[in-house]
Design a protein around this nucleic acid. Sequence first.
RNA 1: CGGGGCGUAGCGCAGUCUGGCUAGCGCACCUGCCUUGGGAGCAGGGGGUCGGAGGUUCGAAUCCUCUCGCCCCGACCA
Length: 556
Amino acid sequence: MLFSKMLIPTLREVPADAEAISHILMLRAGYVRQLASGLYMYLPLGWKVLNKINAIMKEEMDAIGGQEISLPVLHPAEIWQQTGRWDAIGDEMFRLKDRTDRDMCLGMTHEEIMTWLASREIKSYRDMPQVWYQIQTKLRDEARPKSGILRTREFLMKDSYSFDISDEALDKNYRLHAEAYHRIFERCGLKFFMVESDPGMMGGAVSHEFMAPSPAGEDEVALCPSCGYSANVELALSRPRETELAGWEKAEIHTPEKRTIQEVSNFLKLTPDFFIKSILVITDNGPVLALVRGDQELHEKKLSRVIGQHRPAQKAEVKEILGVEAGFIGPMGQTVKIIADPCLKDGMYVSGANKPHYHVRGIMAERDFTAEWHDIHVARSGDICVKCGDALAVERVIEIGNIFKLGTKYSSALKALYLDENGTEKPIIMGSYGIGPARIAAAAIEQNHDKDGIIWPKSIAPFDVEILPLNMKDPLTIDASEKLYRELKERGIDVLMDDRDERAGVKFKDADLIGIPFQVILGEKTLREGLVEIKNRKTKESLRVPLSTAIGMIAL
RNA sequence: CGGGGCGUAGCGCAGUCUGGCUAGCGCACCUGCCUUGGGAGCAGGGGGUCGGAGGUUCGAAUCCUCUCGCCCCGACCA
């Protein structure tokens, strides 16, 4: 491809709206343009990258027996109503009506439609296992699109679905997908981990996420370097580092006007880890008192998994329910349901005395209060791994893929049933598996760039090599570059030639920005010595070799 | 949805507080000359509903009201 003929609108300056590195570089290097919030167009270079990623995904999906199909983007409401997600999913679903006033929606995922298909076409245990996948557009009315193509309202997804007769068979498809996903992300040149995750609205019991470490990510994962434990912080188990054991006699202390942990901690000259933080929340089934250690944060999602939907209590509610104003509440003597973090099981603590302007020193679990024990604190770097006792690391990550064991949630609701060998009707056991190719591209840039631009992994670069004839008015340069271009193309190399009549500096800047892994530089002087220069975008090392040798070297 | 910021040429910005002549600058773009190993130089040129609507005023990019859009933080997130 000739640069002069291709739409590659590079930008010299950083667009004001972009903040994430991948976003800035994709705009500057002419890969994407934004249409509206969360809506992006892929220009020729961007689309080539996406297609390379898609090709890798297809190969690996086909390799585990996946069959590519294509489903509609526009869905009738009834199917979503049957699984309950028409109501369970709120504003995130784009909804519309057709001309006959029938409710429709735009697909944000395809469990319903895939299961509908399975309900018609899979009838016997002999028909399984099946794995169907597609690479197709999803639409979600995101509350807050952000970071360029990392979180958009319309995006491509590779989604696959497995249909099995038993949990063991599902396990196998789940494992095959996990392995395929490992290969896909490896081939795309990403650093990533697979972590335990919260199935959330997808239903099902088990799920894992594939996470690419990057400061631009929206999630955090806890990782144990020793035993390999890894989980999204939304459910990562950890033990905060232990504190000293205090040997107090239990006693009330006057703490006038000292309400927050910080205030009381300063007042008593005790570090926050000697305190119990008591947080009152309101659920549909009444109030719950959540306890974490004073130096810890309560994790809302972890608590939600234990007690369901809840909201923080208002000041008036605290007083009404616990009989004391906020700031002096504590677990002692309370009759409300208490959920406490396990790190409070041992040791002695200070907490509110349930009496205005008093705290109690020397509180012990079981002796002074009883609770249900659940890990509800936010895991942090340096916390102790519950599996092996080593220190955990917490890293910021981009979610690039996920896999779910769905079980029979969708097949039961949509009557996707089959007959087993005994002639008994049973719901199909399902799994669903997703990858966002745009996130792979963005993560690859986040992980591979320098001050000059993108450094693509070879496997997903838009071209294999870029030829830079530095002086387009020099006949020798033109001849040599055209020869090189032709011969590389003949050998099946995907090559971009910067044939623009631009100065050398412009071509160098653009080439580095665009990030094709190898540059072949044809300068007048070196060419007269019969040499061209092969430069590695990543290492910036270059090699001077005869033209004929260059062709052979690049062809490798 | 809550908080903050911003909309002036393709991109980056100044001008707005304190209203005033023909709305400016850099880059990009077009023409010519020149130049060709890291975003050159000179000369000439094109491009603007100042996000939109309404209002105040002799006069509005600038003041007032409403509205639309975009970004960031948070909530939310199959």
